[in-house]
């Protein structure tokens, strides 16, 4: 047994243990902490599977952003007295059966792969040079599966609209109900002064490096969202009302530019979302930059939650 195998087995045992303890936790707050730990550990597992792109996304989304969303939900439940609601046994049982079915389906799919795994990877690697990109993942996302990537970003905006539509009519156009830190803390203020500029450099780096190495708009956008949330939680900047004139253009600039380049492709390269020869890389970088901004704003507002206050004059 090689030392790699020992490491991997240890890692898998740890991840399974954390997963079980997350499921078994009686308290929602403890369960969310378990889930965040699980996400951070999973990013190490993706590294071991040589999927660094996924590892970056997992650290950002699984470790940071999903945890933030769920903590918001926990706080909301507690505020509404939701912790006291006892769930009846049949509901628990049905939930357990459904989860077990999903897990079993996944297990069957993973454990019994077809003899010859269908793959287009060699073709991607052969033709990657034409796009001018160095990162095959970016090549697939923006050249071969560009439509999926575009729709994925639109879905993010639809999700945000879904969250916003939970608000009563009286506060429409108002301010999301992000709970800021309860006590004004100069310690937290200090962190929110120091970390976001560093985060901005990291976000631009992630977005920029995505063209040739693991990284990309999603990772960069998530970093931006986290830094923005940190500044708002610390109370250094107010949560903006969604009627702000700068906010909605930022939200759609990524998908709009993506769509515009796609439509231009119909004229210049004879297909929707095709790039004119020689211009693929600069166009893709432009799309990535715009998408980073849009993803950052969308994720930040998703975590900020539904609207709760009417706009102040």
């Amino acid at each position: 047994m090689t030392i790699f195998a020992v490491f991997d087995i240890g890692l898998v045992v740890l991840i399974l243990g954390i997963a079980v303890s997350t499921i078994a936790a009686r308290d929602a707050f403890a369960a969310v902490i378990g889930f965040v730990v699980y996400g951070l550990l999973l990013s190490i597992a993706w590294v071991r599977l040589a999927a660094v792109d996924v590892a970056l996304t997992e650290a950002a989304i699984g470790g940071g952003m999903t945890g933030m969303l769920m903590l918001g939900a926990v706080a909301r439940l507690r505020f509404a007295g939701g912790n006291d609601i006892s769930i009846s046994l049949p509901v628990r049982f049905a939930t357990a059966v459904l989860c077990a079915l999903v897990a079993a389906g996944l297990a069957i799919a993973v454990l019994s792969p077809p003899d010859a795994i269908p793959t287009l990877a060699p073709m991607v690697m052969e033709n990657l040079a034409q796009s001018g990109l160095g990162n095959p993942v970016a090549g697939v996302l923006f050249v071969y599966r560009a439509l999926d990537t575009l729709l994925e970003k639109v879905v993010l905006i639809l999700a945000l609209l879904g969250v916003w539509s939970l608000a009563p009519d009286s506060v429409w156009g108002g301010i999301p109900g992000l709970r800021v830190y309860a006590r004004r803390s100069s310690t937290l203020t200090f962190l929110a002064q120091l970390l976001p500029p560093v985060g901005i450099v990291v976000a631009i780096y992630m977005c920029w490096v995505g063209a040739k190495e693991p990284g990309g708009a999603f990772q960069g956008g998530t970093v931006l969202a986290a830094m923005w949330l940190l500044v708002m939680i610390a109370g250094l900047k107010r949560v903006p009302s969604i009627g702000q004139p700068w906010l909605r253009p930022l939200l759609v600039v990524g998908p709009v530019i993506f769509l515009a380049i796609g439509l231009a492709g119909m004229v210049l390269a004879n297909a929707f979302l095709a790039y004119p020869p020689g211009y693929a890389k600069p166009l893709i970088v432009a799309v990535e930059v715009a998408l980073t901004l849009s993803i950052g704003v969308a994720l930040g507002l998703l975590a900020a939650g539904p609207l709760e206050q009417a706009q102040q004059q």
């Binding site: 803390s185 310690t187 937290l188 200090f190 962190l191 120091l194 970390l195 560093v198």
Partner: peptide
């Protein structure tokens, strides 16, 4: 980065 954010986050938890 770890040292700096750790030093500050620890104070938050301690508080």
């Amino acid at each position: 980065l770890v040292q700096l954010s750790g030093a500050i986050v620890t104070q938050l938890i301690a508080g």
